[in-house]
């Protein structure tokens, strides 16, 4: 029996107060992943009046089982690292809001942030560090059948597909991880890959042959997911011939990469074609006083340690900006 204990979260002193709608903050940080939490530590230490709005603490890091490339820890699990980040922010005390999505932001000399519950906050500068979220297929049946056979977390949900035929959509590392969770227990795993080859790391692809119940459909895409109370079949289209066929399956794991959480800032700052916020090397966006950091930006390479560093940089740029105002 394993125990995945998050010791820090229980010992850390609770030092968060709620965001105050009447207050004008110096800096408001949007996002609670490595970039946002690092930015928070820098802003508070500079004596800025700081608020932070978090949807899910840790973001993608909390979804990662093992991390071996964050310095200081030879191996640490994602949830544990997130708790350590949060604890480090906690020791200073900050105005904090968790579990909320951002509806919109506005620019101008005073920036505004509106939450999904209608409350709005104002600050002199903004740091956007809202990261990325799992990409969805956007096909009929996907939304309706989520939790009814359509799944996104293989370490959570693989056990429910024991003895079933399962489709894994995608050809990258996260798709292969899902295959490795599923192949030992599912009757058959069918990988539907958009491209003509798999893009995962070699070590993960080499392991596929050892299972004997995994097949790959290259250059295919999912057109529809069908089912009543649960998934029954997946309609796929051959990208070369345009022909569609139906795969009978009890489950679909969608692992097709990530999309930036930047919808709420559309039209306010410039973005590239994939929706990443364009930043310069000081984390400035196209709008004065709005800074951005981490996976939501055009920074090359999305890594925990890079996001953390970018968060620090955005915070220092924002502090400089606020100090020049006064």
């Amino acid at each position: 029996m394993d125990f995945n204990l998050n010791a820090v979260s229980f010992i850390a002193e609770k030092n968060f107060s709620r965001l105050d709608i009447k207050k004008t903050y110096d800096i408001m940080i949007l996002g609670g992943g490595p970039a946002g939490l690092t930015a928070a530590v820098y802003c508070i230490r500079k004596g800025m009046s700081t608020g932070i709005i978090v949807n899910e603490v840790g973001g993608q890091v909390a979804w990662t089982s093992g991390i071996e490339n964050y310095m200081g820890y030879r191996h640490i699990n994602g949830v544990e690292l997130v708790q350590k980040f949060k604890e480090q922010v906690l020791q200073f005390g900050i105005d904090y809001e968790e579990g909320r999505r951002i509806e919109s932001v506005s620019s101008g000399p005073m920036k505004g942030v509106v939450l999904d519950d209608g409350r709005s906050f104002s600050s002199r500068a903004l740091i956007i560090a809202t990261g990325k979220d799992m990409r969805r297929l956007g096909v009929p049946g996907e939304r309706e059948l989520t939790g009814k056979g359509v799944a996104f977390c293989s370490i959570c949900d693989a056990p429910f597909f024991s003895g079933k035929r399962v489709v894994v959509v995608g050809g990258g590392n996260s798709a292969m991880e899902a295959v490795h969770d599923l192949a030992p227990i599912a009757s058959r795993v069918i990988i539907v890959q958009f491209l003509e080859s798999l893009t995962a790391d070699r070590v993960l692809i080499d392991k596929l042959e050892s299972y004997g119940n995994v097949e790959v459909l290259y250059e295919h895409e999912v057109a529809e997911i069908r089912g009543g109370s649960s998934v029954e079949s997946v309609e796929v289209r051959d990208r070369k011939t345009g022909k569609t066929s139906s795969i009978s399956a009890g489950g679909v794991f969608i692992q097709i990469g990530l999309v930036p959480n930047s919808g709420f800032v559309k039209g306010v700052v410039s973005m590239n074609g994939s929706g990443e916020i364009i930043i310069d090397c000081s984390c400035n966006t196209s709008e004065a006083g709005i800074f951005a950091a981490g996976d939501v930006t055009t920074v090359p390479f999305k890594q925990i340690i890079i996001a953390g560093g970018e968060g620090a940089k955005a915070a220092l740029s924002a502090c400089e900006y606020v100090m020049r105002l006064t």
Binding site: A62, V79, C153, I155, D157, P159
Partner: peptide, 8 residues
């Protein structure tokens, strides 16, 4: 829940 589920 499942015991391997970090969000549960």
């Amino acid at each position: 829940v499942g015991l391997t589920c970090p969000h549960c």
